[in-house]
Amino acid sequence: MHRFANPGRFLRLSNVILPWIAVLAAGLIAVGLYLALFVSPADYQQGESVRIMYVHVPSAWMAMFIYTVIAAASASSLIWRHPLADLVAKASSPIGACFTFLALVTGSLWGKPMWGTWWVWDARLTSVLVLFFLYLGHMALMGAFDSATRGARAAAILALVGFVNVPIIKFSVEWWSTLHQPASVLRLDGPSIHPSMLWPLLAMGLGFKLYYLALMLVRVKSELIAARLNARAATAAQLS
């Protein structure tokens, strides 16, 4: 049972902080939504469509943030064999994939009125698409083994290889798009952002981060219980 000693402490801690994080996340997202939809002004160029930014940009932040978390968890799993690290990576991967998907879909919904097409092979969109594939590969590899530990180890190596590659991919995609992109496309990262737009963006961004934290805690707890169930099933099978 000593293997669960540390996770036991984790469970107690997470039970204490989870309600606070959840309430804070809900509150921040509510405030962020109010500011985004009612208070913040329409952009003088993009009109009301700029409000898509308040879900698109935080989703894109989360897509990159969660991949970083997975890489850090994978490193601590491979180096220190921390039993919780694998679970953090496993719990995070689908959340990251969902946010990456959201970044793509909302980006597409923003691109249609702004660029006139649902999709352009712009450097940012393309690298987010590649990130989405990396997430899918990570999830698929994690689930492809009969033994959960083997899946977790293989996925951890893949996550680290992917993490090394993300800047390379990002750089090469930017290189590629400057070779091919006609310069007429309106860039989204235009002038510096006005505070009336920055506040809702920050509120949503922080709200999304806390939402992820709360969701991750719930999922890790669920995985811990599942591991305990499997261990019990295994001992029961040994006994009978």
Partner: peptide, 17 residues
């Protein structure tokens, strides 16, 4: 089936250059 899913995204920079 898994190998292409893992390897192809990592190969994109080579394709580009």
């Amino acid at each position: 089936v898994l190998i292409p899913l893992l390897v192809l995204p990592l190969n994109i920079p080579i394709l580009i250059f």
